[in-house]
Computed example of a mutant assay.
Amino acid sequence: MAIVIDDVEIERLAQSIAAAEGVPVAEVVRESLLSLAGLRGVPAARRPLRERLAALAREVDAVPARIPADKRSDDEILGYGEHGTW
């Protein structure tokens, strides 16, 4: 089913956001509606991409970078030799 929205301002806004984000207009509309559904308590099949990515970023940020007592470089930890091989 296609949705036709006859509003020049909405079209301009969607196209501007899509161009700035480098994504299709349909994705901008989808993510916007998913976000609005979440704010209004309307059940949606999945959370908006931005929310899923933010949750993933929080998970990654929570992982400790390295054990403080380990003084080896990243290359030493990975096992790389002088010429970048094992």
Results as ranks from 00 to 15, higher is better:
Gly79Val: 02
Asp70Glu: 15
Thr85Gly: 06
Ile77His: 03
Ala2Gln: 10
Glu21Asp: 14
Leu78Tyr: 13
Glu11Ile: 00
Gly22Tyr: 01
Ala44Ser: 11
Arg30Trp: 00
Ala45Ser: 05
Ala26Gly: 13
Arg66Cys: 07
Arg46Trp: 08
Arg52Gln: 08
Ile17Met: 07
Gly81Cys: 03
Glu82Ser: 12
Pro68Leu: 06
Gly81Lys: 06
Pro68Val: 08
Asp74Phe: 12
Ile5Ser: 06
Trp86Ile: 11
Ala62Asp: 02
Asp75Val: 04
Glu82Thr: 10
Trp86Phe: 01
Ala2Pro: 00
Arg12Cys: 02
Arg52Phe: 03
Ala69His: 11
Arg30Lys: 14
Ala14His: 06
Glu27Gly: 06
Val4Phe: 04
Glu59Arg: 12
Ile5Asp: 11
Ala45Asp: 13
Leu49Cys: 03
Arg12Val: 10
Gly79Ser: 11
Glu59His: 08
Val60Leu: 14
Ile77Asp: 01
Trp86Asn: 14
Val29Ile: 12
Val4Ala: 01
Val28Phe: 05
Leu56Pro: 05
Ala55Ser: 04
Ile3His: 10
Val42Arg: 06
Arg50Met: 07
Leu49Met: 09
Ile5Thr: 10
Leu34Lys: 07
Val8Lys: 15
Leu53Cys: 06
Leu39Val: 14
Val25Ile: 12
Trp86Val: 05
Ile3Cys: 05
Val29Gln: 04
Gly79Met: 09
Arg40Glu: 14
Gly38Tyr: 03
Ser73Leu: 01
Val28Thr: 01
Glu9His: 13
Arg58His: 05
Arg72Ser: 04
Leu33Phe: 14
Ala44Asp: 01
Gly22Cys: 01
Ser35Trp: 02
Ala57Cys: 07
Asp7Pro: 03
Ala54Phe: 08
Val8Gln: 06
Glu82Ala: 08
Leu78Gly: 10
Gly79Ile: 07
Ala62Thr: 09
Glu51Leu: 13
Glu9Lys: 02
